[in-house]
């Protein structure tokens, strides 16, 4: 699905369909008393880019009163529930989509 937003995504380096790892720890550019949008339960997990959303001001610096620049590309990444919770009791193809900023992701390839 293509979604059109006003904010360009020219800095995006990850592609839809690409397998990605979520960093287990905050990346070096995360600052201060962290305001982090990557939930604890998804750190270190592996998913697939579902949508490249566009670029947005970085909430980690916006939270400190900064300008949030440079903007960060944002992705909707899809994870399989069974890869997140070892004891997941639902269907094997149940999934979770999470918005994650590029600086928290590395290509799994």
């Amino acid at each position: 699905m293509s979604v059109t937003f006003a904010i360009p995504a020219e800095a995006a380096v990850l592609r839809v369909g690409q397998e990605v790892h979520v960093l287990p720890e905050a990346p070096p550019m995360s600052v201060g008393k962290p305001h982090i949008r990557t939930p604890f339960y998804i750190r270190g997990k592996t998913g697939v880019v579902a949508v490249a959303v566009g670029s947005f001001r970085n909430p980690e610096t916006l939270a400190l009163g900064g300008d949030g620049l440079p903007t960060q590309p944002l992705y909707r990444v899809r994870f399989m529930q069974r890869d997140i919770w070892p004891d997941y009791s639902g269907r094997p193809d149940d999934s979770i989509d999470i918005e994650i900023y590029q600086h928290w992701l590395v290509s799994a390839a």
Binding site: K33, H35, L62, L64, G65
Partner: peptide
Amino acid sequence: MTSDELRLGIES
């Protein structure tokens, strides 16, 4: 005040 600042204040 951004929503990010609101959230950091709550998280703190």
